[in-house]
Amino acid sequence: MTGTWVLLGALVATAAVALLLRRRDGRFAATGVAAPASPVDDRERVDAADLDSPLGERATLVQFSSSFCNPCRATRVLLADVVRSVPGVAHVEVDAESNLELVRRHRVLRTPTVLVLGPDGEVVQRASGVPRREQVLAALAQAVPED
């Protein structure tokens, strides 16, 4: 009898996790709140030295990947394509396993995780899981100051 209940519980738990993943995967969320009045800007940053690669003029998409991560490939293809169509935006892929310090600093738990950096390297948006194209474009619109 207990087995039947455990089976039902497992099915419900699986459905719940699957729905949660579907809702959350690829969704960008704003990171710290920018406080323009504050004298100290303590927002999280990633700079060119962290990445070993120059930042984009207007925004940078930092993708944390791991060698065994299948969804990372889909994300790489998508971001590379977005970068081609939006000027001033760079795409940098970081191997999570060989950059554990950066992984810890930005509390990356899953691959792919994408950070959207503003022009000064401040982390503006982040998402984990494979994003959709329109999600990336919307996140970029938030990060890039309109000119």
Binding site: A10, L11, T14, V17, A18, L21, R22, S66, F68, C69, A96, E97, L100, V103, R104, V108, L109, R110, T111
Partner: peptide, 21 residues
Amino acid sequence: ALLNAVVGFCLGCETYLVLRR
């Protein structure tokens, strides 16, 4: 096992990075 079979999400694989971290 179900998550892997149904939605292709590998729970064990996701834990791998957390542990490496």
